[in-house]
Write a protein that binds this DNA or RNA. Structure first.
Length: 721
DNA sequence: CTTAAATACTTTTTT
DNA sequence: AGTATTTAAG
């Protein structure tokens, strides 16, 4: 292994072994290189076996990349190394150990939706007013307390007033319900290992021996349970190395505590601190602008990034009329970058503060046929049709999962209404068993004959698959299941584009199950379910696609792009919030702005609109973000309203000019035709199955969207060239 | 119990 | 504006 290509501080960080190490790694300072080289160094020079290394990353994607890079450096198999997010590492441990805490090892992981549904049920059972105890907000409270490691007993003891008192009771019932369903929420995933360690010290010792060296990336965004986790694991050997940057701490709203990094030395005992301050990513101008903003924050660790890179281009400020104008100008910029600066679409990212901003931009990109990829928003695995199918699979793996049961007991409709469901619930409570158990023998249930028959069929279906799920692979089970419940017909009979869409999403789910199995032969259904619950948006991102990427700034953490376009620089939107800011909140917004700027290598555009619509209302006037005023004027290029056209004059607009539209009757399509769809915009017909108005058309739309639509429902407009 | 119509809600960021 | 949830009619 060669480390001569590292700078002095990087080398020091790699070679220093023994005792706690804190690496302050500024944006673009080569932190990933240091981490991968350090791991390789531990294996090759120190002789530590890969299975004794634990490396925690922020996304699963980062974990995979890290593993691959270490493998390449060492040219040996490192698959025994534990690399992953806190949540996935914990899930792996719990999969083996959680029976010691009174759960079953085949537990399911509840996402926010599931856990909200469970809380809603608890609130109803307690007969509380849902206006006072809004499930979503209660879930937020409970999650916050769990992140702070406050349990319901403590909350109950310290409660002042009716609300807190009831909150602690909901919290308690929720926690019991989770256990009854044999389910963990995201917060439990971090808390249960700590419970395991304190109740069974021998298990802690086991993992301390297993993970002799612990590395943590993005340490500034760890919360209390995560701190306790690494602290416990490393307290024996004291071999821990954390990497982070307090200026990039952007997750305090979900319990991350920047003091974890600021107080590292006190918490872990005498330690070495290394600062990586040379930036290899960005131009001088970008770095100076970023510094000019973030240095206004108080209570930062002392450090300053520098670079040997050229000054580069000034940052461009784009003034827009409203969000539609903004989208339009962004497209001009993209075309300009691609035609005149010869950049491919994948070198450009559009960043925004809130997911809702993506819609206007997306519409414009689609209209103008610019290929794009959106990260976030409604995630694939959170779509209703996907969750419905997953609920079946989850119930097969874990028959105690009441939330999944409720989701599918009448989907597709099988004549089980609200009253029947309530009767199932109360009988299950009475007999202290699962819902599935109740309906497997519906005789004791006070429901109609038709319902009894239907319930029995449902329970037989689930049990049939349950008996075979360990023998059969996940794809086979899913295929059989879809046939059994006849989901394809269900969607096709609706004869709408939306239903078509939903079915094609289900097909995509099936594909992803097949992909998952191909990756590792011994992966079963339960492993697949765990993986999808812990996937990040970024994990599904295909960098290789030649498309512009759209994402929130939070999602962009750790990434870099030649060109960054940041939209919506207005007070109230970025910085986000109402009229009064807590200073701390404002400082986090400022760090977020800093993160956004430092993603850029060459060029930054900052746009703001003079008016913006919210909730589909009329455009409301806005004022410029204060962050724009915190940048040094001499590094800015003000592009006045309507001047975007003049950025470079050779810009060629002809490509998207008006193509005459001719309404077409449905049966005259042929392969290769250009068409326009109301929702998906322009596209090209790739294939036709069947004929006449019932023909199924496979159409490639921009933004890497491919759809199968039925001619008579799709309402397509044919474009004649 | 199912379907259609009315109304409520969304926009903080995510594991 | 678009979607989800609740209520009313069949």
């Amino acid at each position: 292994m060669n480390i001569d290509n590292l700078n002095k501080q990087q080398k020091e960080a790699v070679e220093l072994v023994g005792g706690p190490i804190l690496i302050f790694a500024g944006a673009g300072s080569g932190k990933t290189r240091v981490l991968t080289h350090k791991i390789a160094y531990l294996v090759q020079e120190i002789g530590l076996p890969p299975e004794n290394i634990l490396a925690v990353t922020f996304t699963n994607k980062a974990a995979d990349e890290m593993k691959q890079r270490v493998q390449k450096l060492l040219n040996m198999d490192v698959s025994s190394m534990s690399v992953g997010t806190f949540h996935s590492i914990s899930a792996r441990i719990l999969r083996r150990e959680i029976h010691a805490l009174g759960y079953d090892n085949n537990f399911v992981i509840y996402d926010q939706d599931d856990s909200k549904a469970l809380i809603k049920g608890v609130i109803r059972d307690m007969e509380l007013d849902e206006k006072t105890f809004v499930p979503k907000s209660i879930q937020g409270h409970v999650s916050k307390y769990k992140n702070q490691m406050v349990d319901y007993e403590y909350l109950n003891k310290t409660a002042t007033g009716y609300f807190d008192e009831k909150l602690s009771e909901i919290y308690m019932h929720y926690q019991r319900a989770l256990q009854g369903n044999n389910a963990l929420d995201f917060d439990d995933l971090l808390l249960k290992p700590l419970e395991l360690f304190s109740e069974h010290p021998s298990r802690l010792e086991f993992y301390q021996e297993k993970f002799k060296y612990v590395l943590v990336d993005e340490y500034q965004d760890t919360n209390r349970p995560q701190f306790e986790f690494v602290h416990a694991l490393s307290s024996k050997h004291r071999d821990i190395c954390v990497v982070g940057d307090d200026d990039q701490s952007i997750y305090s709203w979900r319990g991350a505590d920047v003091n974890n990094i600021l107080n590292f030395s006190e918490s872990f005992g005498d330690s070495n601190v290394i600062k990586l301050e040379q930036n290899y990513r960005s131009t001088q101008f970008i770095l100076d602008c970023a510094w000019s903003v973030v240095s206004r924050n108080s209570s930062r660790a002392e450090k300053k990034l520098w670079t040997e890179n050229e000054k580069g281009e000034k940052l461009s400020i784009i003034e827009c009329r409203d969000e539609r104008d903004e989208s339009w100008k962004i497209i001009k910029i993209i075309r300009n970058e691609s035609l005149n600066s010869n950049r491919s679409f994948d070198q450009i990212v559009i960043l925004y503060r809130t997911n809702a901003q993506s819609r206007a931009i997306e519409d414009a990109l689609r209209r103008e046929a610019v290929p794009y990829q959106i990260i976030g928003g409604t995630k694939f695995y959170e779509r209703k049709e996907i969750k419905d199918v997953l609920a079946y699979l989850r119930l097969i793996v874990n028959p105690n999962d009441g939330i999944s049961f409720d989701r599918i007991i009448n989907f597709p409709a099988r004549g089980i209404g609200k009253t029947s469901v309530e009767k199932i619930h109360s009988l299950a409570k009475e007999k202290d068993c699962s819902y599935l158990n109740v309906i497997s023998n519906p005789e004791g249930l006070d429901v109609g004959q038709k319902q009894k028959k239907s319930l029995k069929e449902f329970s037989d279906l689930i049990l049939k698959f349950k008996n075979s799920y360990e023998k059969l692979d996940a794809a086979t089970i899913t295929t059989d299941l879809l046939l059994d419940i006849n989901l394809k017909n269900y969607y096709e009979n609706q004869n709408t584009v939306e239903a078509q869409d939903r079915w094609s999403n289900v097909e995509e789910l099936l594909n992803s199950i097949v992909d998952f199995q191909d990756l590792k032969a011994d992966n079963n259904l339960s492993d697949f379910l765990e993986e999808v619950s812990l996937l990040t948006d970024i994990d599904r991102w295909n960098e290789a696609d030649k498309a512009v990427t759209l994402m929130t700034i939070h999602s962009a953490k750790g990434l870099e792009f030649p060109v960054v376009i940041m939209a919506g620089l207005e007070e109230g939107l970025f910085p986000l919030g109402g009229s009064s800011y807590e200073l701390e909140d404002l400082e986090e917004e400022r760090r977020l702005f800093y993160v956004a700027l430092t993603r850029a290598e060459k060029k930054v555009y900052l746009s703001h609109a003079n008016a913006r619509r919210r909730f589909g209302g009329p455009p409301m006037p806005t004022i410029q973000s204060r962050f724009l005023h915190e940048l040094p004027l001499e590094m800015l290029d003000q592009v006045e309203n309507n001047q975007v056209n003049k950025i470079k004059s050779s810009f060629n607009e002809e490509k998207i000019s008006i193509v005459p539209k001719i309404k077409s009757t449905a049966n005259e399509f042929s392969i290769g035709d250009q068409i326009e769809h109301k929702l998906f915009g322009r596209g090209k017909i790739l294939a036709i199955e069947g004929n006449g108005s019932a023909a199924k058309l496979t159409i490639q739309f921009s933004g890497n969207i491919r759809k199968k639509l039925i001619a008579k429902y799709a309402n397509l407009t044919q474009l004649k060239t």
